[in-house]
């Protein structure tokens, strides 16, 4: 009897160890521990044994049962590990294949640069105003102190719709429109499309400007320098040298051209900056008393500065684009780079 129990135990453990799948392991479990298993039969026949042998054989059978269960458990863990490994191996994919889903689009580089510039001024406290792209001659020129038949009028080659209606050549008309309607203090930026009769590598008949002005009772030329220096440093880098140099615009006086150190050579002189080391970025100045007069302000009581910049030019400098046409050709190979 003892021998039989030992044999069953050994055989069961051997079979369990040799089983290669969870299914065959389950078969082994039924065979050796199931209702019809030899071990269970033995246990059932315990009553037929002499009473003094019963405890001994009983405990032997129980020991064998526990040993078999233990073997089943550990084999199951091993087999589950193997099966998981096989499944993982079967599920292996090429992780370098392309992803699913639609290709994301991108915003136009001009939109990106304009957004950046707007954001800087909005944080400074400016607000956005807009005006029509087709303007009257008054708002585009006369109101801005750009007199007819003055050489300065030639600074803007103009598309005309009718005699006194034109495509705005700059965003400056917004200055007049806003000041006519509102009293100071004013801090305004005016982004938008502008038009000039020019077309070459650096001129497009359509381009974008960001205009801005600040009017209050004691705005100084020093404030103009402060605000624009802050803007340019945020736009081009905190360390970039900035310089203000006298210039002429009919609607500002004194007027200043604002340069930053060349983005390519950082001031040493190269082809991009025409060997000067500087790039012209902004036109600016203190608003001319004649402009204040045109909108009914008292130039003795308020002062202010105005500025304007070409967003296309800034985008070209920022991204190293050498031909402005690329911005309007809309070649997707170009646009997808941004």
């Amino acid at each position: 009897m003892e021998e039989k129990v030992r044999q069953i135990r050994e055989q069961a453990i051997k079979v369990i160890h040799e089983s290669q799948s969870l299914a065959s392991l389950d078969e082994a479990r039924i065979r050796y521990l199931g209702k019809k298993s030899a071990l269970l039969e033995l246990l059932k026949s315990l009553g037929t044994l002499p009473s003094e042998e019963r405890p001994k054989i009983g405990s032997l059978v129980n020991e064998a049962k526990e040993a078999i269960e233990q073997a089943l458990r550990s084999r199951k863990i091993v087999l589950m590990g193997i099966e998981q490994k096989q499944r993982i191996a079967a599920e292996k994919i090429d992780v370098t294949l392309p992803g699913k889903g639609i290709r994301r689009g991108s915003s136009h580089p001009l939109t990106q640069v304009m957004a950046e510039a707007k954001d800087i001024f909005l944080r400074l406290g400016f607000e956005i105003a807009e005006g029509p792209e087709i303007e009257t001659e008054y708002y585009n020129f006369d109101g801005l102190n750009i007199l007819p038949h003055h050489p300065s009028r030639d600074m803007w080659s103009t598309f005309f719709i009718k005699d006194d209606v034109l495509l705005r050549t700059h965003t400056s008309p917004v200055q007049i429109r806003v000041m006519e309607k509102h009293k100071p203090p004013l801090a305004i930026i005016a982004p938008g499309r502008v038009y000039r009769c020019d077309s070459d590598a650096t001129h497009s008949p359509v381009f974008h400007q960001l205009e801005g002005f600040l009017v209050d009772n004691k705005v100084t030329f020093g404030d103009l320098k402060g605000v624009l220096t802050d803007f340019l440093r945020q736009m081009f880098g905190q360390e970039k040298p900035v310089r203000f140099r006298p210039s002429y615009f009919p609607f500002t006086e004194p007027s200043a051209e604002v340069d930053v150190a060349c983005v390519l050579c950082n001031g040493k002189g190269c082809r991009l900056c025409k060997e000067t080391g500087w790039l012209e970025i902004l036109g600016s100045g203190m608003i001319d008393p004649n402009v204040f007069k045109a909108v009914g302000y008292d130039a003795e009581k308020v002062s202010g500065f105005a500025f304007g910049m070409g967003i296309d030019r800034i985008a070209m400098l920022k991204y190293g684009i050498d031909n402005i046409r690329l911005l309007y050709e809309n070649d997707l190979r170009f646009l997808e780079q941004f």
């Binding site: 956005i128 203090p185 209050d216 004691k218 402060g226 220096t229 310089r243 203000f244 140099r245 006298p246």
Partner: peptide, 26 residues
């Protein structure tokens, strides 16, 4: 211009900024 723009100190506007409204269309 003869004094030199570079000799004029850069300052921030003393009265603070007037812009208040967001442009919702933009």
């Amino acid at each position: 211009r003869i004094w030199g723009y570079n000799r004029i100190e850069a300052t921030m506007p003393f009265a603070g900024f007037a812009g208040r409204n967001r442009n919702l269309e933009d």
